[in-house]
């Protein structure tokens, strides 16, 4: 990962060309290059960077002249807030809807669930974001257009960011419920004379929710890293907009730092998901 990020950003060209004034002399350009260490051989730059990264030093931003770790920490709360809100929103809607549609396949609610499932996975979120702004901010004036000033400001970006994950969760839960309902232990429960409500709540739901755990983990990481568009459109001051700016400015050290941070975060989250899996599902422990 470290290797990949380091070398791919350098494939995009020379930051000096974009950062130094256009009528600068070659000497001034060279001075800038030396001041930021771009004059050293690539291998040497890489080893220095690797050593620092392993020691927890993420370097300093070229454009913002501040330590990258500080910049990331400045922006992390906004991104976490948005990702958590979007995750919560998708869970609150997807869980009941997915279960109901699995229990009552073919019902009007099932139709709605399948529609959300389809829409969530096909509508591009940046397009949805613009439509949300046009309808709910410009025309109806119900929500603010951009920024992160109050809880109201969270609504539209959270909806835009949640839809994809919501759609996936609804589809997953629906098929999990359908699958679990055909299991032998459900048939046993039914033959014991348990009511459908008890069967659904005590036996079907807990088992159908197990695969959701890993999806929640994956989607949360996706929201952290993939919210670049949503954050940019809603001018949400998080990691996504920071990454967007860093890429536009060829701010190599910052691009590297953010990608590594998100990758490390994803690895940590995966670990947590695996542990949670073990706790929830006894079968996973025995393996």
């Amino acid at each position: 990962m470290l290797v990949l990020v380091f070398f791919t950003v350098r494939l995009t060209g020379d930051p000096v060309g974009l950062m130094v004034a256009r009528n600068a002399t070659p000497e001034q350009r060279e001075a800038f290059r030396v001041a930021h260490g771009f004059d050293r051989p690539l291998a040497e730059q890489f080893i220095g960077y690797l050593g620092n990264a392993l020691g927890g030093d993420l370097g300093k931003s070229l454009r913002l002249h501040l330590p990258n770790a500080e910049l990331i920490m400045q922006r992390l709360p906004a991104t976490m807030e948005l990702a958590l809100a979007a995750l919560l929103l998708s869970l609150v809607i997807a869980v009941p809807l997915g279960i109901i549609s699995g229990v009552f396949p073919g019902s009007p609610l099932d139709l709605l669930a399948r529609l959300i499932g389809l829409a969530g996975q096909t509508i591009p979120s940046f397009w949805l974001a613009m439509i949300l702004i046009l309808v709910f901010a410009v025309n109806l004036r119900l929500f603010p257009t951009f920024g992160r000033d109050s809880l109201e400001h969270l609504v539209l970006p959270a909806v835009a960011l949640s839809v994809a994950s919501m759609g996936q969760m609804v589809r997953l839960l629906r098929s999990a419920v359908l699958e679990v309902s055909r299991e032998n232990y459900i048939r046993t429960a039914r033959s014991k004379g348990l009511s459908e409500i008890v069967i659904t709540l005590r036996h079907v739901t807990p088992n159908a929710l197990i695969p959701l755990v890993s999806v929640v983990g994956v989607n949360f990481t996706y929201m952290l890293g993939g919210s670049v568009y949503i954050e940019t459109i809603f001018a949400w001051p998080g990691l996504g907009t920071l990454l967007n700016d860093a890429i536009n400015d060829s701010d190599f050290p910052l691009v590297q730092a953010i990608t590594i941070f998100i990758a490390a975060f994803a690895i940590g989250l995966n670990l947590l998901t695996d542990i949670a899996y073990d706790l929830i599902d006894p079968r996973a422990r025995q393996r």
């Binding site: 613009m130 702004i133 410009v138 951009f146």
Partner: peptide, 18 residues
């Protein structure tokens, strides 16, 4: 001074008077 990177969002924001 508010940072709004997307041009269509800037257009929306002046329409709402934000």
């Amino acid at each position: 001074l508010r940072v709004i990177p997307d041009a269509s969002t800037r257009v929306a924001a002046i329409q709402t008077g934000e």
